[in-house]
């Protein structure tokens, strides 16, 4: 069973539908205690970093406990940015801090911001979450803020500048794009996660 965290940042329907399509069992926990028996956690989300404030306190404690037991987590878009220390989008709102660095706004060097549409990911090192993804594969992005490229970066993407599009540290992973909106390639990423959460 995979827990899909609902913290009011966008609707969960499309992520839920995509997980259903790959045959994964999904539940939306109504309280932190519901995470006790799950095999993995997905933190989705679109919108403002300030929305992650809803995860502070008991939710954060419960999520950290699950990770601490070696169960996998996947952050999608805003859910990936939340794994970092924070974001310039909401300077007074702390991130989970599992990954070093702060998220910042795309500088828009001769490109439009927000970054909306299909773009390639350049895989820099092996990552279990992008296993089986062919070079040159494109994914659907929609965001204005990005995470910095660091040692945790599995793949980077270019939009006026380089940013981290796939991150992994231990069993914690994040993707800046939307796997639930990225066709077959996106379903491959979700299948990889479901496999980790078996």
């Amino acid at each position: 069973m995979i827990a899909l965290i609902d913290y009011g940042a966008g609707n969960l329907a499309s992520v839920r539908k995509a997980l259903g399509a790959i045959g994964a069992d999904v539940m939306v926990p109504s309280a932190p205690a519901d995470l006790a028996d799950v095999r993995g956690i997905i933190v989705p989300g679109v919108g403002h970093f300030g929305a992650t404030r809803a995860l502070h306190g008991e939710w954060t404690d419960a999520i950290l406990a699950v990770i601490g037991e070696g169960r996998p987590l996947l952050g999608i878009c805003l859910g990936m940015q939340w794994l970092f220390e924070g974001s310039d989008e909401a300077p007074d709102c702390a991130g989970l801090g599992l990954l070093a660095g702060r998220c910042y706004r795309l500088r828009g060097n001769d490109v439009k911001v927000p970054h909306i549409g299909w773009n390639t990911i350049d895989i820099r090192r092996q990552g279990s979450i992008v296993a089986g993804v062919a070079p040159g594969t494109q994914f659907y992005f929609t965001h204005s803020f990005v995470a910095p490229v660091s040692g945790d970066t599995v793949a980077s993407t270019e939009h006026g500048e380089l940013f981290a599009s796939v991150v992994e540290r231990g069993q914690v992973a994040g993707v800046q794009f939307h796997p639930e909106k990225s066709g077959e390639a996106g379903l491959t990423v979700l299948r990889n996660f479901a496999e980790l959460a078996r």
């Binding site: 490109v111 970054h115 549409g117 299909w118 773009n119 390639t120 494109q138 992005f141 270019e158 939009h159």
Partner: peptide, 8 residues
């Protein structure tokens, strides 16, 4: 590089 999108 960001692709140009074709929308139906």
């Amino acid at each position: 590089m960001l692709s140009k999108r074709i929308i139906a």
